[in-house]
Design a protein around this nucleic acid. Structure first.
Length: 177
DNA sequence: CCCTAGCGGTGCT
DNA sequence: AGCACCGCTAGGG
């Protein structure tokens, strides 16, 4: 499936900012549409150098504050009160569909890769769903950690399985080792 | 537990 | 167009 082609506009921009949390420093990247990437502390950082909040448009500062608040809640295993606008347009059509249905999984709930595939009317695409989960640019807030293997085992996690365990534990989710 | 076959999207040639 | 990856699954030792 082809990448969604997008012609750059004059209003396009990208800003990368740091979000200190109790778990370490996350990096958030914003486009003119909203939050487009989030990286774990010590994880692979988004492209672009980290800027200071002062150097950034007011709109982006507001999104940053929303992101920080949402992240703080999510790291406690609670649902964010609100989210910044999410810019998921970098994904393929299929990936965006996966991320959308994944976003509906509430804290404490899980789905299997196969169940998501069924929800997308592609009952045999479980493996492809796994691929889309791995490509999720906004982990934690787009809760790919709530997707487990069909046998109730953890499955994978691109940010490292330790994070997946931590996030699930905070939400009271149990899995089989 | 292991192994196998079948599966679908993606990215690279 | 072809091909080799994969955060998968169901079925069978």
């Amino acid at each position: 499936m082809a990448r969604a082609p997008m012609k750059p506009k004059d209003s396009d921009f990208r800003h990368t900012l740091a979000i200190p949390t109790a778990e370490g420093v996350f990096l958030a990247r914003f486009s003119h549409r909203g939050l487009c990437e989030l990286s774990f502390p010590g994880g692979r950082p988004p492209r672009g150098s980290v800027e200071s909040t002062a150097a950034v448009p007011a709109q982006v500062r507001r999104w940053l504050a929303q992101t920080a608040a949402a992240l703080s809640r999510a790291l406690q295993g609670r649902a964010p009160r609100s989210l910044p606008p999410l810019d998921l347009t970098a994904g393929t059509d299929f990936q965006q569909e996966v991320w959308r249905v994944m976003s509906e999984i509430q804290p404490g709930q899980t789905r299997s890769y196969g169940e998501l595939a069924q929800a997308l009317r592609r009952p045999h695409a479980a493996r492809a769903v796994g691929g889309a989960c791995g490509a999720n640019p906004i982990p934690v807030l787009v809760p790919c950690h709530r997707v487990l293997a069909g046998n109730r085992r953890l499955g994978g996690f691109s940010g490292g399985l330790d994070w997946k365990r931590r996030l699930l534990e905070r939400e009271g989710v149990r899995w089989s080792e």
